[in-house]
Design a protein around this nucleic acid. Sequence first.
DNA 1: GTTTTTCTGTACCGTACGGTACGGTTCGGT
DNA 2: ACCGAACCGTACCGTACGGTACAGAAAAAC
Lengths: 209, 209
Amino acid sequence: MSTEPEQPDFTDRQRAVLDKALELLVEGGEKALTTAAIARAAGCSKESLYKWFGDRDGLLAAIVTRQASKVIPGADPAANMSEDGLRAALEEFARNLLETISGDVSLALNRLAIGQASKSETGLGAILEKSGRARIGRQTTALLEKGCTLGYLHCEDPQEAYSTLYGLVVRDQHIRMLLGGTAQASAKDLELAAQTAVKQFIQLYGAQN
Amino acid sequence: MSTEPEQPDFTDRQRAVLDKALELLVEGGEKALTTAAIARAAGCSKESLYKWFGDRDGLLAAIVTRQASKVIPGADPAANMSEDGLRAALEEFARNLLETISGDVSLALNRLAIGQASKSETGLGAILEKSGRARIGRQTTALLEKGCTLGYLHCEDPQEAYSTLYGLVVRDQHIRMLLGGTAQASAKDLELAAQTAVKQFIQLYGAQN
DNA sequence: GTTTTTCTGTACCGTACGGTACGGTTCGGT
DNA sequence: ACCGAACCGTACCGTACGGTACAGAAAAAC
């Protein structure tokens, strides 16, 4: 755990293979993600898969890592912004979050990581957590802090505030979708949900507190 | 879907087998839940398993159904209660919810259902949803409605309010734990989290709104 | 006590999958 | 033109698991 050269970079070819594998995963679940199927779909040999990724677990980890590395940086902290700017940024965060967690790719990856959670110490969940959720979390937490220093928000612990915001936005949608329930409805509903969540958040953490 | 004779009742023996199977599931994940292992642990033959439950999917469904049937009714709607009584009831709901979702059994069952979500139309997720989450949801929604009629709360849509309460209570704890992250901390933190969530909820939906 | 049903334990079958071996091919380097 | 590395395709191996068959014990029926 001390010195990890940690070569998370793959060849273009390997990345393409991982993308193909992810495609398979999305449309067939984990059971469809056999080494043979991946090799066939990606047009490579099983031997190459094992040479590149070690074993099946390594392959799964690579898939998750690769996708997690794709998360876009998102909007900047915005040097000086208005109160409405903050609200807009929060609403965009909420919209993005809802869109992301209801996406096929996100659902497939989360299902995969959750399925592996009990066995095998590869820790896909940790990868998802660190590369995906935590990163966007840190970003938004910084945004909240900014809102605090600008006097728009009043919170003692930005971490805590972020957690609350997350809860207000996601509610039980994520677990519902993971369990296979009907996907989040139209973009209209999504927009409305985002607005409602942010309104409630500001009601809790707004400056008039 | 119209007429479901639906014989969810099993022999005592069969129930014992299902409990043993659940035990296996909890401590080993789905991969440990082989028919042979269940038969060995429960002291019955594989043939009996197939006779009683059809096939493996039927067995899994039976496990989930059985456990879902165990959810305790919880506190009554409480005929006439004080405002503090409402708050106490809400806090108890929050505590119970956090305790439940962080329990080994709940995590194992949710992981199982999520893992099966992509394939096989057995719909374990639907069973969990209907028997577990929805039931307690309806109950608490009724509680919120009561709070409204008593004038303690001010909400247009109790369903919506319940959803918000859920989000405030659970935040991202559930998905974090499903992904394998460290379990919820001490009972002290749990109590504090419940109180905070209810306080925020009342701030949003309290009568002074 | 005999018969019939239900159960256990074990052995068995087919299949699917993870992982490996190997011959043949492509391709860049020199 | 030649060499060697990387790679493809396929065949192969071992194993694990879902599901079935069967023989004998237990127990219930009569």
